[in-house]
Design a protein around this nucleic acid. Structure first.
Lengths: 131, 131
DNA sequence: TTCATTTGCTTGATATTCTTAGCGCGCTAT
DNA sequence: ATAGCGCGCTAAGAATATCAAGCAAATGAA
């Protein structure tokens, strides 16, 4: 079993770096996250978290982020240093990066909907559409 | 399916009452617990917890207690008000077919748009907040 | 009784999370 | 230029988890 951390040349990303990476992946601003999480995570606080100035964000915060980003909550908990294991869920299996979507940890429903959207997108391909 | 709740006619005890009950069940003193948990839970603090003077003990504390008492950690987490249910339990079984996307061979642009759509989808899925 | 120990508990201090307000930078448009 | 907006970030404070120390009451010897 490999470490739950990503590899990718960088030895070991901290929770902050991981979260920052994901957020940039999603192309969201700090304030966008604040909005999207319904103020559960203020932009200021998220900044502190991403810069590792907070040692252990509460599970609530982590959960909000995991939901928004659609990533593994338990993984975040582990990264934050919360010992999750003995109680029953030591699963936490991490698949390698199959695609960028691996990080998004889609639910079955989400995946279905994503596939539908993919079809739609490919049928309706527009030239030069850059948001 | 089945309520994650305990049995034992627990009715609706608070976390504190629950923990106090368990400790008396085990016939341990506050200081005995402090000892047994290797000072992870001080007797003073445990007293405050049992008397519901602490609103949300950290997962670490809860974990130490769950291990000592041999009770469910996640149950304690829930009692402490840590939302473990919103999107959690059932979708521990998500990943698995994300590989599907790999086979679709997304272009960079497609991937970007898919990510945006995911994000949109996630925001939409948000249940009504508690105003 | 008196002393020692142990009980649950409170108090005061410290550390940490998390919030609100605001700064300076880089844009874009007038 | 310059006014405005959104960006990431920080400073300062409020709230709260946690610890160390100590207290009164109960118990159990001697």
């Amino acid at each position: 079993m490999h470490t739950p951390n990503d590899d990718r040349a960088t030895t070991k990303r901290t929770l902050g770096q991981y979260l920052a990476g994901i957020r940039m992946d999603r192309k969201m601003s700090l304030r966008a996250v604040e909005e999207a999480t319904n103020k559960q995570v203020s932009n200021a606080y998220l900044s502190q978290i991403e810069n590792d100035k907070i040692q252990q964000p509460s599970p609530n915060i982590l959960h909000a982020l995991s939901e928004l980003y659609a990533i593994s909550f338990e993984n975040l908990m582990e990264m934050a240093g919360y010992l999750m294991g003995t109680a029953g869920r030591s699963d936490t299996e991490r698949h390698g990066r199959i695609a960028t979507f691996a990080e998004h940890n889609l639910t079955a429903d989400e995946e279905t909907e994503m596939l539908q959207y993919l079809q739609f997108m490919r049928n309706r391909k527009k030239p030069g559409d850059k948001t």
